[in-house]
Nucleic acid binder design. Structure first.
Lengths: 342, 342
DNA sequence: CTGAAAGCGCTTACAG
DNA sequence: CTGAAAGCGCTTACAG
């Protein structure tokens, strides 16, 4: 492919026989240009294959044309769906959406954010479990930021959209309600995912408050499969009757392991997930999970952001959504003690 | 949050007592600056919270710092995983990755692409089933483009990474091998998804070549659920014994409908998918599908793109990958005629 | 090793 | 309604 050398505004102006000022105004559809000139210039531009240089345009006008979305693990249904919904909303507003992945550690996160900040976007939606608060605060000093999925960051003075903290409690009550008193909870380090960290600590707190003993099983994502499997196995052998996971993919992984080991679910061990988006909510899997109202959350995130972009001052807003317990087939009553020998 | 007014290079230079030229060179880590000056300026910049304006930097240097990735439906496992892998590769190269969704119709696609082109990226990877060839060709006149997931676009002179066209044949042979001779194929319009279009037409061709009759069931995505379900139902009542889908989510949808209708799979009707990424390949679902080597495909896409970015001329390259038939539990032998009354 | 100056491709008061 | 000119925040020959 022989690359076309970009035709610039100057080329369009010359070809149309007008000044660059007029060409610029015509192409931007300004009113103070004669209808005739406007369409003529537009035609010339189209025929020349002119594409406006957004960098230069943004730089000169000092008015951004895009909104940023930071997502980590787009392959996770929940974030992918958020991205999809946010896109729709941004489209409606006639702006562009630029997405970027978050970065795993703090330096990588800062680098990713600075790249976005340096492009001078109108605002930023951070929907990444993997995002440190300091990184978000850093970004927020430069442009409006909305955090989606985080729970307790009110202190930071950043707008948030999150799921009701009662969700974890509801989930725990469901598990306790089936008689489980010895429960495993999969964990994630706080610096890897604040969202997950808050989730599992809540699980732990509520479970203990309900009189259950809790076994923590670290789940660090890809790479620790063997360790995770072994820890899970040991927990089960030690008498755990239910496994609560902070996100659906982990729950599915647990289900697969149980299946592999020939351990019945929920006959012998119950399993719960969290998020309930996409295939994970399918009756085919039958996962007992907690469904977040993704669409509504995405809408709120964009609304909040656009309000700030529009200049809204006030204190940070925190939109809390209620989800719904999805009764699948993976949570059942704990096996009675006298069944243990069976 | 009171927004910080951006500190610019000029501020850094002044604070450091050097010229903007020197400040710029120091911050870019150029060699021709004294070690002392470099670290001093860097410290000042950090303390001032300086973030380089990428628009201005890119504009002035005429050397892009980011690569674009166009994905549609990031909530689909396959594209989400592609995005994730591409990100990793781009990170390794020290560049940024900017993602954008494709846009549904042609105008929207052009707009999305022009936004990316106008930001002068180093190159573009288009991994969107929803992307028209003309749109891709338009982009390719401006910057290096690699298409991933497309099959037969050799004519366009654009590099591609795709799955072996034999895949569809393998899938069809598996279905025929179980004795199915009356098969439904879910379809998608070419302008909505070239990838899917090529897939289902291949299915159709191979099935007919194998002596099977084919019923086409249009699947237009969200919104046509009712119509799709009805068409599927009718096809089954008309004697279809297998349903071949161009992508896993559709297959899952079919499985759910069958379940809802109390139709046994694969006892009465077999179902196959395509892609085999993420949860869709889980034994929990047991979907019979075709697994694409996503990771390898993403790597190839980035490699090809970076070669072009590096100036490689030559003709378009077409990397073809082989996938693997994933034998799940949703494809079984066709029920014998005398079983029909049962 | 450092600085003054030109320029990247646009937009936008300002003046007509 | 249109044009000449200044400027957005950087980088980079060019000259020292």
């Amino acid at each position: 492919m022989n690359r076309r050398s970009m035709v610039g505004l100057t080329d369009v102006a010359r070809a149309a026989g007008v000044s660059r000022s007029t060409a610029s105004r015509a192409l931007r559809g300004e009113d103070r240009v004669s209808e005739e000139t406007r369409t003529y210039v537009a035609d010339i531009a189209a025929s020349l294959g002119y594409v406006r240089d957004r960098r230069a345009a943004d730089l000169a006008s000092n008015s951004p044309t895009a909104v940023g979305l930071v997502v980590r693990s787009a392959e996770r249904s929940f974030y992918g769906e958020i991205a999809s919904r946010v896109q729709d909303k941004i489209d409606d507003l006639g702006m562009d959406l630029l997405m970027a992945n978050g970065g795993d550690d703090h330096p990588a996160q800062m680098k990713a954010l600075d790249s976005l900040i340096g492009r001078h976007l109108a605002g930023l939606i951070i929907a990444s479990g993997r995002a440190s608060l300091p990184a978000a605060e850093h970004a927020a000093t430069f442009l409006p930021v909305v955090l989606v999925g985080f729970g307790s960051v009110s202190a930071a003075g950043i707008d948030t959209v999150s799921i009701d903290r009662a969700s974890e409690s509801i989930m725990v009550q469901a598990v306790l309600g089936e008689g489980h008193r010895h429960v495993a909870v999969t964990t994630a380090p706080a610096d890897a995912s604040l969202t997950l960290y808050e989730r599992w600590t809540s699980f732990e707190t509520f479970l203990q408050a309900g009189g259950a003993t809790v076994v923590l099983i670290p789940h660090e994502g890809i790479g620790d499969q063997g360790i995770f499997a072994q820890a899970l196995r040991e927990a089960i052998e030690d008498g755990v009757t239910a496994v609560m996971c902070g996100e659906d993919p982990t729950a599915v992984q647990v289900l697969e392991l149980l299946h592999e080991w020939g351990i019945a679910c929920p006959g012998e061990v119950s399993v719960t997930g969290f998020d309930g988006s996409g295939t994970f909510s399918s009756p085919l899997i039958g996962l007992t999970t907690f469904q977040q109202p993704v669409r509504q959350m995405a809408k709120d995130a964009v609304d909040l952001l656009m309000a700030r972009v529009g200049g809204l001052q006030g204190p940070a807003e925190h939109r809390v959504h209620e989800g719904e317990l999805l009764r699948g087939r993976t949570l059942g009553p704990v096996a009675r003690a006298d069944d243990e020998s069976a």
